[in-house]
Design a protein around this nucleic acid. Structure first.
Length: 930
DNA sequence: GTACTCACG
DNA sequence: GACGTACGTGAGTACG
């Protein structure tokens, strides 16, 4: 078949795939001989994913993976420094390059390279050819150098971001259409490829110039007309260098190719060939997965040689090897094995991710990598949908739950047997509901978090992938997705055994891999004193829940609904037409297109953006935006709080049970979900009333204790600012004191506006202050804000030193630390471009926010013992606040005890040079307790 | 699924 | 000189 209309060519930037795979994966080696194969395995996974993702109506008819070949190209002849600043290829990547070619061929995909040409030129020539023949092209790459090819049926696809890039996308990146991309690149240059360009001109300026003059040639010809003297001079002086740069970035569309389009026709992979390759690479899990997909037998793997020493040594994961425990005899055997080992990895399977709704379905155990079992307990027998008889009966092959738990309870509670889990808080809560108090335990999620916060997330799939090179069986393979999704108790037991026991097996392997690393990362203390002991404390808080009064919420909902309806009518009348007030896009069209109001900005998708601060500016002169702001506030309160909260009231307890994630926030803070009880309104009067629905049981009172200015106190301590420390010791108003120091105004009779500005600066410092940010917050001109900052740093030079020291430490080590040794990794700190600013500010903020988080964690961990004997329970944590429910007569005793724990929480590990002060309040509801 | 908006510390 | 900006979260709605 001749390539032409209706055909679709996929061109993959193979070199980019290799580098991404190399950097994204740990350095895996082939077991039998230690050959590095990490990049190859990543490459293979990406190719396979691409094939799978591209099945369907828009599937490519032709495809090729294109590689660079040889280091010397015609561009080096033009300019000998081209790509001269490239680092040497890493030693362990070099031998993998030919293997990726082999992999491509094994998948039956054309593999293209040509001596003396970069992959980009081959891609360019093929794209042009295909386009001229009337076909379509998708270039799978995110390389900006290829963007000049986009248009007329040629698109790019960024496989990493899963995003298509068309002419509009190019325009976003370069500010000009694809046809002018080379002009912009020629001016802006490229430090990565060492293309010189015009000094001092970046993409933005380049686009500006090209748009003004139409083209690079025109611009260079009329360079004399440029108004800015520096720019004019640069362009005139460097005209030659700019022309050379254009040659360097221009892709060759007409190179003489060794192959034609027709030879690139898509062919299905041949099972035997691809499996043989994967087998030789010893990629066990992907070999298996592909074999299943292709309906072939996986070939036998060669046995690893004895001298290979991947640490720690573990057998391959094999879900077929797991045992289905059906009776008491089998379970006794496993319990014996656990006692013999002294440690077991455990995982519970349930009907729901929500621990309060979840019912136990089965338990998996693993005593040694590869040796795992699953004990199904309450699986239902399979039956057709709507089969009223079969479906509620227990399935065959399960022992009675009560008996199984009776046998397991002694081991699970045995202080001599370590239980290992991934996210143990979940299993702890599930087992607590069955009367089992599991202890002692280790948690692989928290071990990972203590070492690697900031580097990646800590879910099992991520960890298995990164540290074991293993892809876990996806849960959707067992339960399905969407509407037809079933609960775990409906899953066939043979499948459940594979999934559940694999989880326990993987957990055991992660523990063997990660636990020994804790001390080399010097984070054992963090894990043992700040992470692990918090788990049972949180589990108890979550199970207790907080009482929420449904009637209060429901009355508020109705009131909000009425007010919103009235506002909506007003808004439509003001707009002259009905529209969806909740749609920023439609609202923007009314405000900015129709009414022609100023200040409108469009977002990434090209739709109008209408954030509150913009509307607030408009509200001073127009009614419509003012009403929209009111409507939005009510809409938020109603949907997120008065409506949604009601759905979270548990039918048995009448209380709301949030779930805290311990390893969610990088800084060490907790995060609250389902529902989030850390963002219940308080700042606005109307919103605060929602807290009236959080109530104490009859005869009880809610007590709230919160740290006063804890982050600023920590800043004063770590940066060693004597004036701030002194002010805190004397109990002064810290913002007023700052204002007084900065502006030389007396504390007495201070203008509230001046204090407000000082307050904004104090907060800004904690966030890694910038002139821009402060200006926006205070709504003052940027240079004025910058002036404030300069003055602040002059007055408190220790703050500037702290910031520089912190970012310096982050650059040197790749992480920052809290006072308690918590480590927050900062992998982006060395980045160039806008991420650098983000990373820097995050690095400045993390030790402060993180130390505050550590302090309250320590208080929470000590709290159960401190209030033991009092009729009181800790219910909620909101970053610097703890909420308790206590019997009426014991308010004072509880307040005193809890306050003491909180104020002394940093001791004895850290003796702060400023006092920690806790403020307390009590009342029938949360609003009153504040 | 992503973008936008907004609630909290 | 240019670039894009306050730190950390979770959730609901619109829209493709």
């Amino acid at each position: 078949m001749t390539f032409g209309k209706g055909h679709h060519l996929h061109l993959v930037d193979g070199s980019a795939f290799i580098f991404r795979a190399y950097h994204a994966l740990p350095p895996l080696t082939r077991k039998s001989d230690g050959l590095p194969v990490g990049a190859v395995s990543g490459f293979v996974n990406m190719i396979w994913k691409m094939i799978e993702d591209n099945r369907g109506p828009d599937a490519p008819t032709h495809a090729a993976v294109v590689f660079d070949k040889g280091s010397h190209t015609f561009r080096n002849d033009l300019y000998d420094l081209y790509k001269a600043n490239r680092d040497e290829m890493p030693e362990d990547l070099r031998p993998q390059i030919p293997l990726t070619r082999e992999a491509t061929k094994a998948f039956n995909i054309a593999c293209l390279e040509q001596e003396g040409f970069e992959a980009d030129d081959i891609i360019a020539s093929l794209s042009c050819k295909a386009r001229d023949a009337g076909g379509r092209v998708t270039i799978i790459s995110s390389d900006k150098d290829l963007m000049q090819l986009v248009g007329d049926g040629v698109e790019m696809f960024d496989a990493m971001k899963n995003r298509r890039i068309d002419a509009e996308g190019v325009r976003e990146k370069f500010g000009v259409g694809p046809d002018r991309v080379v002009d912009v690149q020629a001016l802006a240059g490229d430090s990565v490829d060492n293309v010189p360009g015009a000094p001092g001109i970046g993409i933005k300026t380049a686009a500006l110039l090209i748009n003004e003059y139409g083209s690079l040639d025109e611009l260079l010809e009329r360079a004399e007309e440029i108004k800015q003297p520096k720019r004019r001079q640069t362009l005139i002086e460097h005209a030659e260098q700019i022309r050379l740069s254009r040659q360097l970035v221009s892709l060759d569309c007409n190179m003489d190719l060794d192959y034609d389009l027709d030879s690139l026709e898509v062919k299905e992979p041949e099972a035997e060939v691809v499996l043989d390759f994967l087998n030789r690479m010893e990629f066990r899990s992907i070999t298996k997965r592909l074999a299943e997909h292709l309906g072939a037998e996986p070939p036998a793997m060669p046995e690893p040689k004895a001298e290979a020493t991947p640490a720690p040594e573990m057998p391959e994961i094999d879900p077929d090897a797991y045992e289905w425990v059906k009776d008491e005899e089998a379970l006794q055997r496993w319990i014996g094995a656990i006692r013999a080992k002294g440690a077991v990895a455990i995982d519970t399977e349930t009907t729901s991710l929500n621990e309060m709704r979840a019912k136990l379905v089965g338990i998996s155990l693993c005593v040694e990598p590869g040796q795992a079992c699953y004990i199904p307990l309450t699986h239902r027998s399979e039956g057709q949908d709507g089969d009223l008889f079969g479906s509620d009966a227990l399935a065959e092959g399960q022992m009675p739950m009560a008996r199984a738990l009776e046998l397991l309870k002694p081991v699970l509670e045995d202080p001599a047997v370590l239980k290992i889990g991934q996210n143990m808080k979940y299993d702890l809560k599930i087992l607590a509901a069955e009367g089992i108090v599991l202890a002692p335990f280790d948690d692989t999620m928290l071990i990972s978090y203590a070492m690697h916060a900031g580097l990646h997330t800590h879910g099992m799939d991520t960890l298995a992938d990164r540290y074991l090179g293993h892809t876990c069986i996806p849960i959707k393979e067992i339960l399905g997705t969407g509407k037809s999704q079933i609960t775990f108790d409906r899953a066939p037991i043979d499948k459940a055994v594979r999934y559940a026991a694999e989880d326990a097996d993987v957990t055991m392997r992660l523990w063997r891999t990660l636990r020994p690393q804790l001390h080399t990362a010097r984070t054992t203390t963090v894990y043992e004193t700040l992470e692990r002991p918090l788990v049972p404390v949180l589990a108890a808080m979550e199970r207790r829940g907080v009482k929420v009064d449904r009637n209060t919420l429901s009355r508020m909902s109705s009131a909000f609904a009425q007010k919103m309806a009235a506002l909506e009518a007003d808004i439509h009348a003001l707009a002259g037409e009905p529209f969806n007030v909740g749609s920023p896009k439609q609202l923007g069209e009314i405000l900015f297109d129709r009414m022609g109001l100023p200040g409108g900005k469009k977002g990434k998708a090209g739709a109008w953006s209408t954030p509150a601060d913009v509307l607030e500016d408009l509200a001073t002169t127009h009614d419509l935006p003012a009403r929209v702001l009111d409507w939005r506030q009510l809409s938020k309160l109603k949907s997120t709080y008065t409506d949604a909260l009601q759905e979270h009231i548990h039918s048995d307890t009448g209380r709301v049970h949030t779930s805290y994630s311990i390893a969610g926030a990088n800084t060490g803070r907790l995060a609250s979900t389902d529902p989030n009880l850390q963002n219940i309104p308080v700042r606005s009067e109307e919103g605060r009333r929602i807290r009236e629905a959080f109530v104490a049981e009859p005869g009880h009172v809610l007590v709230s204790l919160d740290y006063s200015q804890i982050e600023l106190r920590i800043l004063a301590h770590v940066a060693g600012i004597e004036a701030l420390k002194q002010a805190f010791r004397e109990g002064q108003d810290i913002h007023a004191m700052t204002a007084s120091e900065m502006f030389g105004v007396p504390l007495e009779g201070m203008d509230p506006m001046v204090r407000r500005q000082a307050k904004a600066i104090n907060f800004g410092v904690i966030y890694g202050i910038s002139g821009f940010g402060l200006a926006r917050n205070l709504r003052i001109p940027r240079d004025e804000a910058q002036g404030f900052i300069t003055r602040y740093f002059e007055r408190f030079p220790g703050i500037k030193d702290y910031m520089d020291d912190t970012t310096g430490f982050a650059k040197e080590h790749g992480y920052v630390q809290t006072l308690f040794g918590r480590r927050i990794n900062t992998p982006e700190i060395g980045a160039k471009g806008p991420q650098a600013g983000f990373a820097k500010r995050a690095a400045i903020n993390a030790p402060i926010q993180g130390t505050a988080a550590d302090v309250i964690r320590r208080a929470m961990i000590r709290m159960p013992d401190a209030i033991e004997g009092l009729p009181a329970k800790m219910l909620l944590q909101v970053h610097d606040e703890l909420l308790f429910e206590v019997e009426e007569g014991s308010v004072d005793a509880l307040t005193a005890a809890a306050k003491e724990v909180m104020e002394a929480a940093s001791l004895p590990a850290v003796d702060l040079s400023v006092p920690l002060v806790v403020e307390a309040g009590a009342g029938q509801n949360w609003a009153a307790a504040h």
